[in-house]
């Protein structure tokens, strides 16, 4: 079996386990490259269907192209779309990038989980993104305050996942944990997954990772196809999240966000 097939099979297995085991399951869907890949895998796992809601978190600083892609696919793929927005008066990155992220994303997420009483959330994080995600489980329990107890994670082996909720309020499910950025592009190319044009170079610039407009910067690049993006990734020494300004505020900025319930 080919490398991409193996990644795909593993993700499908995880998605089906989540769907079987978790009541009130939903997926976070940003219409970014990882989200798009998950949605693609979900449709494979469930024979063309997306049998749970797709939650899109709006901050008010959203990339217009992603909103457009969202609305188009929500129709085409018959999604149960939930748009979540946390309006915090006057909040913007000048108040502190981490403060802003907490208010507009993290708190928003807490609210939406509480409102719908979600038992599980599918999230597109990958282990290669940063050192805290490198230590994630496929099924990761979060407590009543959405906190991640990273010092005492349950064991997970042989595809036997922790799906019993003992004391924790919801589960994070990470079907892309074992994928790399390069895998995503290789797969996107093979499967012809619809992706935002922002990822492909125009006038010598492209986006590598998409977040809010003020905190996401484009990189210098001529890569205008998935194949060229992969070639670029092989050569680069820059990490993917180096374009996300909120991570760079302090050594533990991202860990703090994540412990507290951020994706």
């Amino acid at each position: 079996m080919n490398h991409l097939d193996r990644l795909e099979e593993q993700s499908i297995f995880i998605l089906r386990e989540a769907f079987h085991k978790i009541e009130r399951l939903a997926m976070l869907w940003s219409a970014g490259k990882d989200s798009q890949t998950i949605l693609w895998l979900v449709r494979k796992a469930f024979f063309g269907r997306v049998p749970f809601p797709a939650v899109f978190m709006e901050t008010g600083f959203d990339m217009p192209e992603l909103i457009a892609l969202r609305d188009r696919l929500a129709k085409e793929w018959n999604l149960n779309l939930i748009v979540a927005r946390n309006n915090v008066e006057g909040m913007n990155p000048s108040k502190g990038r981490v403060v802003c992220c907490s208010a507009l994303l993290k708190e928003n997420l807490k609210k939406i989980v509480a409102r719908h009483n979600f038992g599980g959330l599918i999230v597109g994080v990958r282990r290669d993104e940063d050192p805290t995600r490198a230590k994630e489980r496929y099924f990761s329990p979060r407590d009543a305050h959405m906190e991640w107890h990273v010092e005492d994670q349950p064991p997970e082996l042989w595809d036997q996942f922790n799906t019993d909720l003992a004391g924790s309020v919801h589960l994070r499910v990470h079907p892309l944990l074992h994928w790399t950025e390069s895998d995503i592009w290789e797969y996107a190319e093979r499967e012809q997954i619809p992706m935002a044009q922002l990822y492909f170079a125009r006038h010598g610039k492209r986006h590598r990772s998409l977040g809010c407009v003020p905190c996401t910067s484009a990189i210098e690049s001529d890569a205008d196809t998935p194949a060229k993006i992969r070639a670029e990734l092989r050569a680069t020494k820059k990490s993917e999240r180096s374009v996300r300004a909120q991570d760079q505020e302090s050594e533990d900025a991202f860990e703090k966000l994540r412990r507290d319930g951020y994706m």
């Binding site: 940063d130 050192p131 805290t132 490198a134 533990d252």
Partner: peptide, 8 residues
Amino acid sequence: FLTDGLQA
């Protein structure tokens, strides 16, 4: 510290 990424 490359892989020991957690503060703890």
